[in-house]
Deep mutational scan, measured.
Amino acid sequence: KAKLLVLLYAFVATDADTICIGYHANNSTDTVDTILEKNVAVTHSVNLLEDSHNGKLCKLKGIAPLQLGKCNITGWLLGNPECDSLLPARSWSYIVETPNSENGACYPGDLIDYEELREQLSSVSSLERFEIFPKESSWPNHTFNGVTVSCSHRGKSSFYRNLLWLTKKGDSYPKLTNSYVNNKGKEVLVLWGVHHPSSSDEQQSLYSNGNAYVSVASSNYNRRFTPEIAARPKVRDQHGRMNYYWTLLEPGDTIIFEATGNLIAPWYAFALSRGFESGIITSNASMHECNTKCQTPQGAINSNLPFQNIHPVTIGECPKYVRSTKLRMVTGLRNIPSIQYRGLFGAIAGFIEGGWTGMIDGWYGYHHQNEQGSGYAADQKSTQNAINGITNKVNSVIEKMNTQFTAVGKEFNNLEKRMENLNKKVDDGFLDIWTYNAELLVLLENERTLDFHDLNVKNLYEKVKSQLKNNAKEIGNGCFEFYHKCDNECMESVRNGTYDYPKYSEESKLNR
């Protein structure tokens, strides 16, 4: 008799109507990190870190770059004969040098303040090359056809396309004075040089004057150069050297050249137009028929994500570079809930034993079982409120962090190594801060989002509990077992918050 009662009780308990509160689960393989956990499985997430590029040089917003090819900045601007293909260059979106560009200054020497000139050019998007001192009329008392084997072109001695090597005419090199007034309405880049012979005999042979000088002056520039005559090792078949100089001439300003020898005179100059998204990159990537809004030396990035880990040097509207390998923000729920887990921000989770793959029309909802059958029903209101809140948060985070910009490298010469090392340390410090901030932001927001979901499920549970009161009992896994019969209409009233407690209280009292 006792065995019969136990079996009867078990049958009745199993047959009781139930309603459970749960949440969506799926077959997603997404994982995120939080402050407290690593690799948390979630139903949905968004990636904030771009880690792919196309490996190509592309047009930037429809404008092609200027590819210097086998030449570098120095060779292009001075007019190395091997860089003749660059003479027609007028406009570009950015400038590309190759790491091993070999054609710079063909006659050995240095372009002074080269690093600063590169910085200036990094904001130039177009130029006009014009004859600042016409070759045939500007130097009537001097020979202007100086050439050298060091600047050979097609097997013949030649010289820079933008400079003139002035030497004596006959047996004399009379003092020369020439000036140019900038009437271009924009900055003009003027380049010139000073020749330093290897011996007094060479000085006399070329310029006749043993104590020659070169003077260059404008409103913002004033220097006097004296040739340094000295024996030097042979470089590119030359014992002599040429140093090259430049200045930016403001609109309306005048530049005056005065010399008694050794002047490498300007022939062509450049009127410059600035462009905020221009820059110089060093890259071996090849040019393709493609378009982008962000270019790196590795390749083009076409992404609206706020961060990238491809390269710190970028041109155009680019994500911020960070050292992170993963920045994924959760938008959905835990896919593998932890039992009795309390989140960092106070939300209680884990009283549900598992997510439901059968509930596909919402994030949170119900599963019921009664004599009429069983089924899932999503709670659309709480789901939609959660979707709206999380979507707004993700968009806000992306908008705040998605300050796209150009980031170019800084140039230092060989004598500025300590400054370069200090600059690298400062840049590394800023990069570490950006990386830390980005990672911390994602970790915190992921923790908040998961706790937010847990709290929403808990609130749904409490909503049902407050309606049923003692007409049902909690069975410990997020479910309630009714003390009365609850048909589909009754189940719907529980879900929509209109459950009639008094209607079922007498039946429940008897069954309790």
Rank of each mutant, 00 (worst) to 15 (best):
L272G: 00
F144E: 15
D17M: 08
D51F: 02
S150D: 02
H195C: 03
L121K: 05
K59G: 02
K234C: 09
C151T: 07
A212R: 12
T14D: 06
F257Q: 03
A13H: 11
G185T: 14
W192Q: 03
P174D: 13
E187A: 09
G62R: 09
R129G: 05
E82N: 14
Y213Q: 11
V216Q: 06
L121N: 01
C151S: 13
F11T: 01
T74R: 09
A217M: 09
N220M: 08
G210N: 11
S158T: 11
P88I: 14
W139Q: 03
S172D: 14
D33G: 11
I229N: 11
G275P: 00
V40L: 07
E250P: 12
P174I: 11
S91Y: 13
S125P: 00
Y23F: 13
V46Q: 12
I21V: 15
E128K: 04
K61A: 10
D110F: 03
T34F: 06
S150E: 04
G109W: 10
A41H: 06
Y268E: 01
S152C: 00
G240K: 07
L7N: 03
E202I: 09
L263F: 08
D84N: 04
Q120H: 14
R129A: 05
N72V: 01
V235D: 11
N262D: 06
V40F: 07
V96I: 15
G170Q: 15
S215W: 11
D33L: 07
P99I: 13
G252N: 03
V181H: 09
I35V: 02
L86H: 10
L36S: 15
D30T: 13
L77W: 04
E97I: 15
Q67C: 01
E119F: 08
A25Y: 15
L248K: 07
D253L: 00
L206N: 02
F11C: 15
D113A: 15
K1R: 10
S278H: 13
V147P: 03
D201A: 10
K1W: 03
K70P: 15
W165G: 07
T260D: 00
D110I: 12
L163D: 02
W76D: 05
F159W: 10
S205M: 13
K3L: 12
K169G: 10
L60K: 04
N162Y: 05
F225P: 00
G170W: 02
P99F: 11
R223L: 09
V6Q: 08
Y114H: 07
G240P: 05
N222D: 12
I35Q: 09
H153T: 15
L5A: 08
H195S: 02
K38V: 03
E136R: 01
G104D: 10
A64I: 04
S91C: 01
V40S: 01
M242F: 14
V216R: 05
N72F: 01
L4K: 14
P81W: 02
L206M: 14
E131W: 08
N243Q: 15
G75A: 14
V188H: 02
L176Q: 01
N80A: 09
T18V: 12
Y114I: 15
E50Q: 05
Y268T: 08
